[in-house]
Amino acid sequence: MTLKSLTPALILAGLMLAVAGGLRLAEGAGLVDADMARRGIQVAIGLMLAAYANLMPKQIRRWRSARADAREQAALRVGGWSLTLAGLAHAGLWAFAPLAIADTVAMMVVAGAMVVTLGFAVWSLTLCRSTGEGAARS
């Protein structure tokens, strides 16, 4: 793993820590209540998920057959789209929905996106292995 691939993750982690710390300080100073601080961190988590998922399709390695590379790229795109949309929905729910609804529905949205992502990846891998497309080039 190179520094180039770690940089976006480190930036997002630093932003998350800054948001969490800032909200904790604001809560301690009485600027926001506990519910608003909770909403703020959950919105930040949703936006972080969306940002990181947006980077997924850009992480392909080309070292197998062209069909296997295409299937991997398709799986990364499906995962990127589904998790980006789930992150945005998560952030929107926590920003605007009542707490009881946001807590349950946001979790269901992200879990659904994970099922779609993993399901498509497993289907793509199974299809690739059954047709022998995953073999390395000679």
Rank of each mutant, 00 (worst) to 15 (best):
M107P: 00
G30N: 09
T104R: 07
A20D: 13
L49Y: 01
L47V: 02
E72T: 04
W94G: 03
I41Y: 05
M48A: 13
V32E: 05
R61V: 13
R24H: 10
V19P: 15
W81M: 13
I41R: 09
A70Y: 12
Q42T: 12
D69R: 12
P57E: 13
A75C: 03
E72C: 01
D33E: 14
Q59I: 08
A95D: 08
M107Q: 04
L25F: 15
R62V: 12
G22K: 09
L55E: 10
G112D: 08
P57A: 14
L49Q: 02
L99Q: 10
G79S: 02
W81H: 14
L23C: 09
G92F: 05
R39T: 12
R64M: 08
A37I: 05
W94T: 03
L85R: 02
L31V: 10
A50R: 14
A113H: 01
V115S: 15
L85Q: 02
R61A: 02
A111C: 09
A91W: 02
G92M: 05
G40E: 13
M108G: 00
V105K: 05
A26Y: 02
I60S: 13
E72G: 01
R67E: 14
V109H: 00
T104S: 14
A113E: 03
L88N: 01
Y52G: 11
V19Y: 15
L47M: 06
A50M: 11
I101H: 01
K58Q: 14
N54L: 15
G22H: 09
I60F: 06
R67C: 09
E27R: 11
G80Y: 02
A113Q: 03
L31Q: 10
F96Y: 04
G112E: 07
A37Y: 06
A68C: 01
G30S: 06
H90Q: 05
T104Q: 13
A111E: 03
V43T: 09
A100Y: 04
L76C: 07
A70V: 06
V78D: 04
M56L: 12
Y52H: 11
G80D: 08
V115R: 09
L99F: 13
L49N: 04
M36N: 04
A29N: 12
V105Q: 03
V78I: 12
L31G: 07
T84G: 04
D103E: 15
G87Q: 00
G92Q: 04
T84Q: 08
G28D: 13
G40D: 11
R67P: 08
R64P: 09
M107A: 10
G22S: 10
A51N: 11
G46K: 05
R38G: 08
R24K: 07
K58C: 14
A53L: 12
A113I: 10
G92P: 11
L55V: 15
D35N: 14
K58I: 07
M114C: 06
G79W: 06
E27S: 06
A68R: 01
G46P: 05
A106Q: 00
P98F: 01
R24P: 05
